[in-house]
Amino acid sequence: MIRIRLGARGLGGVRFAVSPVGAAKDLLRLVGFSPGTLTPQWRTRATDALSRHRLGLLAVVGGGGPLGYAPDFIRPEPPAFLTDINTGLHQIATTPQERIRYELAGAVNGHAWDPGSGHPPPRQLLRALDRGEDHFAHRLADEMARFWHAALAPSWPVIRARLEADVTARASEIARSGLAEALNRLAPNLEWRDGELLVHMRTDSIHQLTLDADAVILTPSVFVDWALFCAGEPPGAPAPRTPLIVYPAAQADCLPPAQDHPLIGAMRRKLLAELSQPRSTTELAQRLYLSPATASYHLQILHRAGLVTRTRRSRHVLYQRLGGAT
């Protein structure tokens, strides 16, 4: 169990974030540790990206060892609510050397490739480290960039919209019921009790840690069904980071590619095809020979699914397809 003790200052530092690099790490973890939980589309897309682009080091580091631990520096601390992919990649590439050594020592000697498990550290990881921590970090950032663009970028607008919608819903819940109640509803293994945020791990007999924290970062994911604890460590750890908890976004079944979204039927595909540029409901109805009410009905569903944006211009509401929606 992980215990995060938050005083009044710590509660004031609780914040949400949406991270594209974090989403990539979540996908890598499932590919390496639990591929059977992925949908066939995502499993194929991720494994094809890793093999086609020869991303062996990223697969080893991001997938975790026998106990599922993967070094946390490939999930950088989000500096803002929404961090773009290039910022996240730069953070990976410039990870302090002492932080890389600290996390890899844990991965090789204790957390993941435990000597008692019978799984020695992968030779590919050890060979990459021979050239030094800076080279290691830059190579991982480069491989993460290629994995991101091949596996996640086509669906990121849809995923991002869903994650942002989740955070909006959590904010509304906090306003209605308070932070404690909202925290208790984030994940089945997350609990707020007596001033502590408790993360119950599947291997509680191994993971026991108590932290005093001035903040916690909460980030939703479409690739988890269980809260994951990242980047918290005892006092004295090099380049300390804010504790970060990944929790399942509401209805967190892994999204299929956008073109296979279950809400897209033939009529909605036609609407999306017309929305490469902003158009009003009336204009769309005329172009597709629909009644304005029918066009509006389908557009509302597409908007709720995070596939189109909606903006007001003068007296008109204009819809436009998010990139990669078709």
Score class of each variant (00 low, 15 high):
W192E: 05
A325S: 12
A107H: 04
L272V: 04
L263N: 12
Q286A: 15
L211F: 04
P257M: 03
A161G: 11
P235W: 12
R312L: 08
S280F: 07
A150M: 05
T83H: 08
H111Q: 13
A187F: 03
D134Y: 03
E181F: 11
L58E: 02
A215L: 04
G118M: 00
L318C: 10
R131F: 00
Q97N: 13
F81E: 06
A93L: 10
R170F: 01
R75M: 05
A305T: 02
V18P: 01
L318M: 13
E143V: 04
L58N: 03
E77S: 09
T203P: 00
K25L: 14
H90G: 13
F229N: 08
P234Q: 12
G36E: 11
G106K: 13
R52M: 02
G32I: 03
A295H: 07
I174W: 02
S205G: 03
R315V: 04
L197H: 05
P66I: 12
R269N: 13
G232Y: 07
V158L: 14
S276T: 14
E173T: 09
A239I: 09
P262V: 06
G7N: 15
T168L: 14
A137Y: 07
G12K: 09
E77F: 02
Q41P: 01
P79N: 07
S172N: 10
P78A: 08
N86Q: 14
A105K: 15
P20A: 12
A213E: 10
R139Y: 00
R268N: 09
Q286G: 12
R139E: 09
K25N: 09
L284K: 08
A23T: 14
L198K: 06
T168P: 01
S155Q: 09
R123D: 03
E133M: 06
E233S: 15
F229P: 11
V167R: 02
R43T: 06
H261E: 02
